Amino acid sequence: MDLPAADFPGSQSSLRAFAWGVRSVTSTVLTLVLFATYLGIGALAHDTHFSLGWVLASTAFVWAGPAQIILISTLDSGATVVQAAIAVAVSGIRLFPMVVSVLPMMRTRETKRRHLVLAAHFIAVTLWVECYRLLPQVPRNRRIAFTHGLGVGLLSVCLVATAIGYGLAANLPQLFGAAILLLTPLAFLLSTARNCRQLADILALGLGLALYPFAATLHSGVDILISGVSAGTIAYGVHWWRKRE
């Protein structure tokens, strides 16, 4: 259910909606998780001898922690730029369903495709989770501006954390760096569980966790993909069957 425009603090103008999106960064614990994660990415870039400007650019343009780790580790291992680009592109495919599910929440009859380009760039796991939590409270005609503000706010936090992590790399123990990178999947798992509303959501998440140990025994290299697709397909089948009944 959409919130009446009068109840949204940024309903008066797109600029205020943008500002409210930036301010909303402080209302989620995922901001702290991102900050800790990008401390680790900054430290990783320093230890693999990439420049600060390069890693800041990768944060701004790649805007996905796992993809940045793939990019840094792939280039550091001696792979070519083309090979690294292919690896990052394959990693980015996982975000496509998130983009497809969030963009319709922002569209109006007047929305043109060019209005959604920046919002689509910002949609990674964190913004996907927060859009499902926050966008129903935003009038539809202000949702793009709000999402731009939320994305800029989260990206700014990550840029700052990347720079700090890069500067602290000399004093950051490797074990601590690995631990803070682990915070990201754990936080996303808990946030996804919190946002589960329907039986299909709960079933997909529960089956995904239950099926992963069996998928891991296949040693396919795409264990998470196998368990996720299997669980999602079963959950969708149950949802379709219940809806038909």
Rank of each mutant, 00 (worst) to 15 (best):
V117N: 07
A210V: 03
T162M: 13
W54L: 03
M106T: 11
V125Y: 11
I224Y: 09
F176P: 01
Y166T: 14
A87K: 10
Y166I: 12
A210K: 06
A89L: 13
G78C: 05
G237K: 09
V81C: 00
T48D: 04
G237E: 09
A43N: 04
Y132K: 11
A210G: 05
G167D: 14
R16N: 08
Y236E: 14
I202G: 13
L3D: 03
T217Y: 04
I234Y: 14
L209T: 13
P185K: 12
L199V: 13
A124R: 01
R194D: 12
G153C: 05
T111W: 11
H121D: 05
A19S: 14
F18I: 01
H148Q: 15
L172R: 14
Y212V: 04
N171W: 14
T162F: 13
T31N: 00
F96W: 12
G153Q: 05
P66I: 02
R140Y: 05
E110Q: 13
A45V: 02
S14G: 15
L150M: 14
G165S: 05
L95E: 13
L34E: 05
P139C: 11
V25W: 01
R140M: 10
L172M: 15
V55G: 02
G237P: 08
G237I: 15
S220K: 04
A163Q: 11
V160N: 06
A17E: 10
G151Y: 06
S27I: 00
L134E: 11
V88K: 04
M1H: 14
V33D: 03
Q12H: 15
S58C: 07
R142T: 02
G237Y: 13
K243D: 15
R244I: 06
S51Q: 01
Y132M: 09
S77R: 05
E130F: 05
S24C: 03
N171S: 11
R140P: 12
R143E: 06
I70P: 02
F50L: 09
C158E: 14
F18T: 05
L168G: 10
V129Q: 12
R23L: 00
Y166F: 15
A45P: 02
A215V: 02
M98K: 12
V29K: 12
G42L: 07
C131N: 15
Q83K: 04
H239Q: 14
P136N: 13
A43I: 02
S220D: 03
T217Q: 15
W63Q: 01
C196H: 05
G221F: 06
T162H: 12
P173E: 13
L118V: 12
I226Q: 01
V125L: 11
L127S: 10
M106Y: 03
L155S: 06
L3Q: 15
A215K: 00
L95G: 09
P66D: 00
R16M: 09
D2V: 10
F176A: 15
L181H: 09
R107F: 06
S101T: 12
V33A: 08
V25T: 06
L150T: 08
T48N: 07
L3V: 03
P136V: 09
A119C: 07
Y212S: 08
Q137Y: 01
G21H: 11
V117I: 08
Q137L: 03
R107W: 04
G208T: 09
C196D: 05
K243N: 15
I93C: 11
L30N: 13
L56Q: 06
H46L: 00
Y38R: 04
L159Y: 13
L127H: 04
R114I: 03
A120E: 07
A84Q: 10
L190N: 07
L155D: 08
